[in-house]
Design a protein around this nucleic acid. Sequence first.
DNA 1: CTTGGCATACCGACCGGTTAGTCTGTGGGC
DNA 2: GCCCACAGACTAACCGGTCGGTATGCCAAG
Lengths: 199, 199
Amino acid sequence: MATARTTDGSGAPVPQRLLATATRLFAEQGYDRTSVQEIVEAAGVTKGALYHYFGSKEDLLHEVYARMLRLQQERLDAFAGADEPVEVRLRAAAADVVVTTIANLDDAAIFFRSMHHLSPEKHKQVRAERRRYHERFRALIEEGQQSGVFSSATPADLVVDYHFGSVHHLSTWYRPDGPLSARQVADHLADLLMRALRP
Amino acid sequence: MATARTTDGSGAPVPQRLLATATRLFAEQGYDRTSVQEIVEAAGVTKGALYHYFGSKEDLLHEVYARMLRLQQERLDAFAGADEPVEVRLRAAAADVVVTTIANLDDAAIFFRSMHHLSPEKHKQVRAERRRYHERFRALIEEGQQSGVFSSATPADLVVDYHFGSVHHLSTWYRPDGPLSARQVADHLADLLMRALRP
DNA sequence: CTTGGCATACCGACCGGTTAGTCTGTGGGC
DNA sequence: GCCCACAGACTAACCGGTCGGTATGCCAAG
């Protein structure tokens, strides 16, 4: 057995446990309202352990962003690059980002709310990666507009912001124990987007 | 002249100046990263003045919410109650909330980002007022769906969240010095909503 | 098999700095 | 002479981060 078996609560390795605990607490209370002491207590370790694995409290936050950005970019690339008509690819990508966001609601809640807690360099880096994502999505819409399957009445940039506004908003209102499953919400939101883009 | 004329920078009365300064700083740096000392210095007074007019730092934040909620509710009531076909009323209300949000971008940036800094009672109160607003808006959509001018494919609740997601998102990407005026953005976003609702 | 040495993983008391809020003081208009 | 509107020094609490210390496992030498 590789990992030490001490008197901890859960069996997961310490770094992962710290990150998971921090993510939950950041989402529940916000970054500033969550003290390092609180995180280590909830994870069943002490500050020494945290600063052994992470350079700072901010590193913990940055990890949340890195994880989220990597995941979403990978999925978008997969959907956008598929061998399908553009309207199928866009719909799939638009619905998938909703499902993925709901599956990681804590990350989503943190994402926009805590961006300004990142140091200037990390903030810039996150914004740059975010922009790449945005542009990949926009390219899909422009492709459809140029080929005539989507209306060109609205600039593609605005359409992207329209859709991602609603995705971002999910963490405010969506509740897993509510009447709609993630899949149902995703289908509805993707439908709204596709209907808004009808020529 | 009623208001005292001391050596302050701007001529506005002290309470308003404090609130305006706090709003700007909260939007720029976040609630927690803004110290009371910073606010009073930027407003050209001292802590004594702030605590003379406001009970706590949180009261300042609550004022931002109260102002925003009052303004939006008033305007929605006016538009929704007009003597026009439902599609005209909805479009006007949907566009107006965009214009008003852009006119008060700082308030909007604070609104969703800092909600969890409110005490439980105030948080609850804000959520309740917010829900009233949401329901008024939803009623408009349901009215159109029942009379057949809007598609019923998507539950009205979801449509409201879809639209307000994009409104909420404005503070993230909209820049007053960008290529689009508030009116143009409002028209585009209202168009997207109306097109998504076409039967 | 045992022993010594070293690295990794973690502990927890401690520190400098910051914060929201308090309280006593004061000056000028009525 | 009184009181409203503020001034500004002060405090008690808390926070992120540090650092010397300890326990445990591994590997190589004897």
